[in-house]
């Protein structure tokens, strides 16, 4: 990161941008009384079964129901990811031992936490109103690495950037889709606006920590962190394919359908802009 654009400068800019976009977190979205049966709740092109032969066998009612269940699954992954993010951001407030812990950073992180808290409310409200529940959390880290503070923060903000880039990629597609229903469209739109700032902070933290880690010659730790980030990226990719969704539609062999979706070249191609965007970013910063 250049001297001119230090993480403190980024924090100040993001604080200004956040404060300009203030909103009532509990009344931001206009939730419909009932969902529109002829509008998508999730972009049709991103329905997990879209490229499998079975999709052609579904009637219009099942396709619509699939779009609702996949919206609930996507929002549930959002909620659990953001809850974990908030829990990990709080201990990063007002410390003085590591990167990004001076007061201006903490002031931005407080806005970051506030906005993530608002998102989980907005997303959960959609799930509860139209499905009655949030899908359970499936994230379970089996690896418990011990890293230097710089690499620990690269891993944390790196995973956050992966999640937010994924959410942003899908949100952007949904916002541009004129066939989306009103409430779902609003949820995607408001999330997309805020995540742009969060990604900027993730990048500032990754780059500053990377610079410090390189000066301390932590290359083996950096390689290990990158492997864990790749594992997390694949977890996020696979989280879009949920057999519980297929079972709720009355389809048999939910696990087999999931395996087919994950192995589908069309699905990988569809998500390639997201994965290539991440790879390009890491290459650009020398990670």
């Amino acid at each position: 990161m250049s001297q001119k654009n230090t993480f403190q400068v980024v924090a100040r800019k993001l604080i200004t941008a956040s404060d300009k976009k203030k909103y009532d977190p509990f009344n931001r979205v206009e939730y419909q009384e009932t969902l529109n049966g002829d509008r998508w709740q999730f972009p049709e092109d991103f329905l997990s079964l879209r490229n499998l032969p079975i999709y052609g066998d579904l009637d219009d009612e099942q396709k619509w129901r699939l779009s609702l269940l996949e919206a609930i699954n996507f929002f549930s992954v959002n909620i659990h990811g953001e809850q974990a993010l908030v829990a990990a951001l709080e201990p990063r407030l007002y410390r003085d031992k590591r990167v990004g812990e001076d007061p201006v950073s903490s002031k931005y992180i407080q806005r970051f936490i506030h906005e993530e808290n608002s998102h989980t409310y907005m997303l959960a409200e959609f799930c509860l109103r139209y499905h009655g529940s949030v899908f359970p959390d499936r994230a379970f880290a089996v690896e418990q690495p011990k890293f230097s503070p710089e690499v620990e923060d690269i891993l944390f903000y790196g995973r956050t950037y992966i999640l937010e880039s994924y959410l942003g990629f899908i949100n952007q597609k949904a916002v541009k889709d004129s066939d989306m229903d009103t409430s779902a469209h609003q949820v995607h739109k408001y999330h997309l606006i805020d995540e742009a700032r969060h990604k900027a902070w993730d990048k500032a933290m990754i780059e500053e920590n990377l610079s410090r880690a390189k000066k301390k010659n932590l290359s083996s730790e950096l390689r290990a962190a990158k492997d864990l980030m790749a594992t997390y990226q694949e977890y996020i990719y696979q989280s879009a394919c949920n057999p519980a969704v297929y079972r709720a539609l009355g389809l048999e062999n939910g696990m087999r359908l999931r395996t087919e979706v994950i192995a589908s070249n069309e699905r990988r191609d569809l998500m390639r802009p997201w994965s290539e965007g991440l790879a390009k970013y890491y290459a650009d910063i020398g990670f």
Binding site: V142, T231, Y232, Y235, Q238
Partner: peptide
């Protein structure tokens, strides 16, 4: 198994 496998 890895974290991704745990999801499956």
């Amino acid at each position: 198994i890895t974290s991704v496998d745990v999801l499956e």
